[in-house]
Amino acid sequence: GLTEEQKQEIREAFDLFDTDGSGTIDAKELKVAMRALGFEPKKEEIKKMISEIDKDGSGTIDFEEFLTMMTA
């Protein structure tokens, strides 16, 4: 499992990506986040990433899903 410290770091990354503070990361926010990390993702790639992570089919990534992605 994760230490509380690791969870906190992932939470901070999540909050950075969640620019509108909605508690979820949408495609637009993910794209901005990827760019910040030096990637140039295409729209299809973003969609694919979200569909792989987005277990509940909401079209957005919540913290639990993000946590799973970061620790996979």
Rank of each mutant, 00 (worst) to 15 (best):
G1E: 09
G1K: 10
G1S: 10
G1C: 14
L2E: 03
L2P: 05
L2M: 08
L2H: 05
T3K: 04
T3S: 10
E4L: 10
E4R: 11
E4M: 09
E4D: 11
E5K: 12
E5W: 12
E5D: 09
E5S: 09
Q6Y: 13
Q6V: 06
Q6R: 15
K7S: 04
K7W: 09
Q8W: 11
Q8S: 07
Q8E: 05
Q8A: 10
Q8F: 09
E9T: 13
E9G: 12
E9L: 14
E9W: 15
I10P: 01
I10K: 01
E12L: 14
E12G: 09
E12F: 13
E12A: 14
A13M: 14
A13K: 10
A13I: 14
A13R: 05
F14T: 00
F14C: 02
D15C: 13
L16Y: 12
L16Q: 07
L16A: 07
L16P: 01
F17D: 00
F17I: 14
F17K: 01
F17Q: 03
D18A: 05
D18G: 02
D18P: 01
D18C: 09
T19D: 04
T19N: 06
T19L: 09
D20Y: 04
D20P: 01
G21F: 04
G21D: 05
S22A: 04
S22T: 08
S22E: 02
G23R: 03
G23T: 02
T24V: 06
I25S: 00
I25R: 00
I25E: 00
I25D: 00
I25P: 00
I25W: 04
D26K: 08
D26R: 08
D26E: 07
D26H: 06
D26G: 08
D26S: 11
A27M: 12
K28R: 10
K28D: 13
K28V: 06
K28Q: 10
E29Y: 14
E29N: 13
E29M: 14
L30S: 01
L30A: 03
L30V: 07
K31R: 14
K31Y: 15
K31P: 09
K31V: 15
V32E: 14
V32I: 12
V32K: 15
A33C: 10
M34A: 02
M34E: 01
M34T: 01
M34Y: 05
M34C: 08
R35M: 09
R35G: 05
R35A: 09
A36L: 14
A36K: 11
A36E: 04
A36W: 14
L37Y: 04
L37M: 10
L37H: 03
L37S: 02
G38N: 03
G38A: 02
G38W: 02
G38S: 02
G38T: 02
G38K: 02
F39M: 06
F39N: 02
E40H: 14
E40F: 13
E40A: 11
P41Y: 15
P41F: 15
P41C: 15
P41T: 12
K42I: 09
K42G: 13
K42A: 10
K42Y: 08
K42F: 09
K42W: 09
K43V: 13
K43L: 14
K43D: 15
K43S: 14
K43N: 15
E44I: 06
E44R: 06
E45N: 08
E45I: 13
E45P: 03
E45L: 14
I46S: 02
K47P: 04
K47G: 06
K48V: 05
M49W: 09
I50A: 04
I50S: 02
I50F: 13
S51I: 06
S51A: 13
S51R: 06
S51L: 07
S51T: 08
S51K: 08
S51D: 12
E52K: 13
I53A: 10
I53H: 12
K55Y: 05
K55F: 06
D56Y: 09
D56F: 08
D56K: 12
G57L: 08
G57Q: 07
G57S: 04
G57N: 08
S58N: 12
S58V: 06
S58Q: 06
S58I: 04
G59K: 08
G59I: 06
T60V: 10
T60W: 06
T60A: 07
T60L: 08
I61A: 01
I61N: 00
I61S: 00
I61H: 00
D62M: 06
D62Q: 06
D62L: 05
D62R: 11
F63E: 00
F63D: 00
F63C: 01
F63M: 03
F63I: 05
E64A: 10
E64D: 09
E65Q: 15
E65F: 10
E65A: 14
E65D: 08
F66V: 03
L67P: 00
L67K: 02
L67H: 01
L67S: 02
L67R: 02
T68K: 11
T68A: 13
T68S: 10
T68D: 05
M69Y: 15
M69C: 12
M70R: 01
M70P: 00
T71A: 13
T71N: 04
T71I: 12
T71V: 12
T71R: 08
T71K: 09
T71G: 07
A72F: 14
A72K: 13
